[in-house]
Simulated assay, not measured.
Amino acid sequence: MEWRKEVEQIAAYVPGKSIEEVKQQYNLEEVHRLASNENPLGPSEKAQRAMQKAVLETHLYPDTSASALREVLAETYHVNTDEIITGNGADNVISIVVSAYVNEGDEVLYCTPTFPAYRSSTLLMGGVPVEVPLRDDFTFDLHEMKEKITKKTKLIFICNPNNPTGTIVDHEEIEAFIRDVPKDVLVVLDEAYIEYVDVEGYKTGIDLFKEGYNVLTIRTFSKFYSLAGLRVGYAIGTKKVLEPMLRLREPFALNRVAIAGAVESIKDVAFGEKHMKMNREEKLFVTEQLAALGCKVYPSHTNFIFVDMKQDGVVLFEKLLEKGFIIRPCAGWGLQNYVRISIGTHEQNKQFIDSLKDIL
């Protein structure tokens, strides 16, 4: 049976190594994954209790609109509930956006390297990915992006902070860029890591949306809120922008356990502050240790760091596997000497640095 021609253009997603796989392959009892940008603290205790209770009701279908979660999000960000759509992780929301708006031949603009879902979702719909290289400091080149806008441009994705580089765009620069974008082009701000941005007065996509700009903001509970295994994503935009997306969203996109966990996670402010403090301190520790080893660490506004190891990142990745550590080589983005390292607990980070010293 023949494949759709669009599917043939899409490279299969290559996930990071699983802990179970590495344990079996190298006969190890303990393995630490510093590759997938997960929160090492796990879900908050309040979220855990809510999820345990929700498990007892899994014989019932979930609320199709996830109204309890949308109400908490609306209260948190001071928007209306009908300006929020939920999905099965941010990846799912990205797919819905592209499916709702991109026709064959439409152009989708973004900088690269960045999150690969923009490209694959565009190709699947017969759209044309238009990729603009990042600047030398691995930040978005919004000036060059503006030059690439044509009459065929339908969507513009800005991953902010960017994955895999951890860099952000100055919010005034984003605001100026959006003002110059034609009104019939939707700017999508992918803010999967926005909770980690620690810049006073920084305007987020939700702030810009409330000021009337034509933007759609996508966020997730996978990173900061420790719910990667439950797949909870959402987007905030106008009712008009969300309307076609709601037609495509699967009826039960979020399960009962996911909804319960997400509601309590965002309400547990104290847990968020604890995680933020740990991430800030540990990111500084790992950065200083790597710099002392001669590596170049780029400024990061996330829970991971982007590092030029000054040697083949894939070879280093494989040597670290033998010692029970999984990192993310960036060769898939065309960056052979670069790796992405998630921030773990202090004990994990210390063991990781010691293992790296042994190798180097």
Rank of each mutant, 00 (worst) to 15 (best):
L360A: 01
G205V: 04
H301D: 04
G233R: 05
L356C: 05
A90R: 00
V315H: 11
F271A: 07
I149F: 11
G313Y: 09
Y202F: 15
W333K: 07
Y202I: 12
I149M: 10
L208Q: 03
E71V: 04
L290F: 12
L60I: 08
N88M: 02
H32K: 03
Y338L: 10
E250K: 03
S226H: 09
N37L: 12
G212V: 08
F285C: 04
I218A: 02
V307Y: 02
E250Y: 01
T64E: 15
A68D: 14
V72W: 03
E318A: 02
Q24R: 04
I326Q: 09
L41V: 03
D312V: 08
V97C: 05
G332E: 06
Q348V: 07
T302C: 10
V286D: 00
I158L: 10
F352R: 05
K274N: 01
V22C: 11
Q48P: 03
Y101C: 00
T112H: 05
V263R: 00
D63L: 06
T114L: 05
E29Q: 15
Y213S: 01
V7K: 08
L124P: 02
D91Q: 10
L290D: 07
T204D: 03
Y26C: 07
V128A: 04
R4S: 14
K277A: 07
P329E: 12
P133G: 06
L316Q: 13
T122H: 11
G205Q: 09
Y298M: 14
A192L: 12
D63P: 11
D137E: 03
P40E: 08
R179N: 13
E29N: 13
Y101W: 10
L216R: 05
V169W: 12
D308R: 15
M278H: 14
G16T: 11
L293P: 07
H275E: 09
L230C: 11
Q24W: 06
R119E: 13
T58C: 12
L284N: 08
E191A: 11
F157I: 01
N303W: 13
S222C: 06
L320Q: 07
A176F: 07
T238N: 09
N255Q: 05
V31S: 07
E175D: 01
I206P: 08
V108H: 10
F115G: 02
R219C: 14
S120E: 07
A270F: 04
L134D: 08
L216D: 01
E273Q: 12
C295S: 06
K323I: 08
R135M: 14
D207E: 07
A12R: 01
A258M: 02
N39Y: 01
Q52L: 15
T64V: 08
L216S: 00
A260T: 01
T76R: 09
K239Y: 04
F306Q: 05
P329N: 09
Q351E: 12
F285K: 00
Y26F: 15
L155K: 04
T217L: 11
K146Q: 15
A292M: 14
K210W: 01
L360E: 03
G126M: 05
G89Y: 04
R135D: 10
L284V: 12
P129G: 03
P113L: 02
K53P: 07
